[in-house]
Design a protein around this nucleic acid. Structure first.
Lengths: 148, 148
DNA sequence: CGGTTTAGTACGTGACACAAACTAAGATAG
DNA sequence: CTATCTTAGTTTGTGTCACGTACTAAACCG
C-alpha cells in the first residue's frame, strides 16, 4: 500500500473523527453544530457574542442556533445582570446529561479506533497530538477549549 | 497546562483541520461538501449511487449536490453506456484545476501546522496517523480514498 | 443631552440533508 | 413473452444551518 502523506492522512482522519461524532450526535437527534454548542456551554455561560466568537459564527447565525436549541429545551437565555441588552446562554440539566452521554459514546468510538494501535503507539499518538495542539495554541495566543 | 486526553485531542484536531479546509474552500466559493465531492471525483467517475456510498449521503441528497455542482460547471452527468437509468458523474477541467488549487492551499496550511513540531515528531505523527488509518481500513474492509 | 458604538434580533436567501413518493429501466420468474 | 420485482435516479416537502442587511434598544462618550 502506498504511503499516506501527512496532509491526506490528517484530512482523512479528521473526516473519520467528525463522522463518528456526527453519527453519535444523530443518535440523540442533534446535529454536529448543536453538539458543539452544548460542548462549549458545558463549562461556560457566555453572551451571544462570546458564543459567536467561540464557534466562529456570525452573530445572526448564533441567534438561530440558540433559538433552535432553546425550542428543544437544551439551553436557556438568562438576562445579563450587568447589561440589559445582553443575555447569557446556559445549558439545561437535560442538555447537560445529553452532552455527557454523547461525549461518552464518542469516547467509546475514539477509544476503539486508537485501540487498533498497540499501546505504545497509541500513547505516542496522544502525546504528539497534544504537543501539536499546544504548539498551535501558543502560536496563535488562543485558548484551547473543549469541543465535545 | 493540563494533559490533553486522546479523545479531546483528536476531536480538537479534527475541528482544526476541518476549519482549515473549509476556509480554503471558501476562498474558491465552494463548501466543504462540494470540495469533498470534487476530491472524490479526482480519480473516479462514479454513478450517483456510488457517489452516495462514497460520501455517505442519501441518494436524494446526492441529486441536489450534483445539481448545484453541475449548475456551477464543476461536474457533468454522462449517460452510462451500459445502463440507461444511470449516469456517471465526472469533473470538468475547470473543477479539476480548482480542486488542485484548494488541495495545494490546504496542504500549505497543514504543512505549516505540523511544522510547529520538530522534524522527528512530525515524521512520527505522520507515520502513526497512517498506521491508524490503515488499521481502520483493514478492520472495516474499506478502501481508503482521497478526501481532498 | 445628542451622536456613536454595541448586543441582539428579524428577514430574506441559499446550501444542505433527509424521507417519501414517483418514473423509467433493468432483471427475473413463470 | 409478459407480469412482477428491483434498481437508479429525481421530485417534493420539511427542517437545519449560515450569511448579509437592516433594524431596535441599551450603553457609552463627549
Amino acid at each position: 500500500m502506498a504511503q499516506i502523506s501527512t496532509v491526506d492522512g490528517l484530512a482523512q482522519l479528521s473526516f473519520l473523527i467528525q463522522g463518528t461524532l456526527e453519527r453519535r450526535a444523530a443518535e440523540h437527534d442533534v446535529s454536529l453544530i448543536q453538539t458543539r454548542l452544548l460542548g462549549v456551554l458545558r463549562d461556560r455561560r457566555p453572551t451571544m457574542q462570546e458564543l459567536a466568537r467561540l464557534l466562529a459564527l456570525d452573530k445572526s447565525s448564533v441567534t438561530g442556533l440558540v433559538d433552535r436549541a432553546e425550542r428543544r429545551g437544551l439551553v436557556t437565555r438568562v438576562p445579563s445582570p450587568t447589561d440589559r441588552r445582553s443575555s447569557l446562554v446556559e445549558l439545561t440539566d437535560r442538555a447537560r446529561e445529553m452532552a455527557a452521554q454523547v461525549a461518552a459514546d464518542f469516547e467509546t468510538d475514539v477509544t476503539a479506533l486508537v485501540g487498533l494501535l498497540p499501546p505504545a503507539a497509541r500513547a505516542e499518538l496522544t502525546a504528539l497530538v497534544g504537543r501539536l495542539l499546544i504548539a498551535k495554541a501558543e502560536a496563535e495566543g488562543v485558548d484551547l477549549f473543549d469541543t465535545v
